[in-house]
């Protein structure tokens, strides 16, 4: 459906997008995830034909964006970072204008505008001037604009910014609904959002693709650290001695205990070594009950932070191995 190959965008010496390649299949929801300035919006602007690429190709349904922009633009609905609204028009006037601009047939126009206002829940506001709308409503009008004409591909740049939690859930449901008939690309810097909605997640930093996978698989890339959280009740000295005797434990950190009479540790071991059984036997030998033992999995946030801070491409590393 969408094929992006070796996309590069340079602004002078600054590289905004660096050798980005990916494909999106029909009916998929792809999420771009990355910190601010990672190149998400730039990539979207290139796919929609708003700006050109320095190098690389983008094909939508097999048609090249740079060769036949008009054809591609017919197939794409785009909600940019700032919803492109005319403050002096009413919601209804604006959507009628967009429908006409996107070459929706006159006979279907009225119904489509009405339906889309229902879907995005802005029917109550249709007579209001856009400049009088709140941020959340503006965002929804922007979304309505992107859906207008029911294009094959819908590209949403941070669609839930400025919405309250209830609206966010509604918009997510809407996006899921849309993906039944459309291909959706959305961007976000919020991890949960992407993992809640998307079939596939791309983490981008400094214009480079760092990782692409299904949201549920993301954490598996990072679960090799082998750290454990341990809470025991017992004598501090004895426990420390017993733990220090276990060879598999590389590093021991005492953390603050929440319950009285307990001692908490964070235990680090090698990725390949599982120290849990050794700890169990060691503790049982000194008659110290283990209250909690838990391997620490990286949350999606941790992954995101780790990935974007390191700035290294994990995809390459894996291919190398």
């Amino acid at each position: 459906m969408i094929e992006v190959k070796n996309l590069v965008k340079r602004y002078g010496n600054h590289i905004a997008v660096d050798q980005l390649s990916f494909t999106v299949d029909k009916g998929q929801i792809l999420g771009f995830l990355g910190p601010n300035g990672a190149g998400k919006s730039t990539t979207m602007n290139i796919i929609t034909g708003y700006i050109s690429a320095t190098e690389g190709t983008v094909k939508v349904n097999g048609i090249d964006v740079f060769e036949e922009p008009e054809e591609v633009k017919k197939m794409i609905g785009y909600l940019p970072e700032f919803p492109p609204l005319y403050p002096e028009l009413t919601v209804l006037e604006y959507l009628n204008f967009v429908a006409e601009l996107k070459k929706v047939k006159q006979s279907e126009r009225k119904k489509m505008v009405k339906d889309i206002m229902e879907i995005t829940k802005i029917t109550d506001m249709k007579e209001r001037l856009i400049k009088h709308l709140s941020k959340g409503y503006k965002q929804r009008v922007g979304l309505a604009q992107a859906i207008m004409g029911y294009p094959d591909v819908i590209i949403l740049d941070e669609p839930t910014v400025g919405l309250d939690p209830k609206q966010i859930t509604q918009i997510r449901d809407l996006i899921r609904e849309l993906s039944k008939n459309h291909t959706v690309i959305l961007s976000s810097h919020i991890m949960q959002e992407v993992s809640a909605v998307c079939d596939s997640v791309m983490i981008i930093n400094k214009g480079k693709l760092i990782l692409q996978d299904k949201p549920e698989n993301l954490s598996s890339h990072f679960n090799k650290s082998g750290s454990l959280k341990l809470v025991v009740r017992g004598d501090r000295k004895a426990v420390l001695k017993a733990l220090n005797d276990i060879e598999k434990i590389k590093k021991l950190e005492e953390t603050e205990s929440l319950e009285q009479g307990t001692i908490s540790f964070t235990i680090y071991s090698n990725e390949s070594d599982d120290a849990r059984e050794d700890i169990f036997y060691a503790m049982s030998r000194i008659n110290t009950p283990i209250l909690e033992m838990q391997s620490i999995r990286m949350s999606l946030e941790d992954i995101f932070l780790k990935v974007t801070q390191d700035g290294t491409s994990l995809m390459d590393e894996e291919e190398g191995i």
Binding site: N45, T48, G49, Y50, E70, K73, K74, I76, Y78, P80, F82, P84, L85, Y86, P87, V98, L101, K102, K103, Q145
Partner: peptide
């Protein structure tokens, strides 16, 4: 207003 983004990504 960045509405040029709408015009330039529409089929006109």
């Amino acid at each position: 207003q960045k509405t040029d983004q709408l015009l330039l990504t529409s089929p006109v």
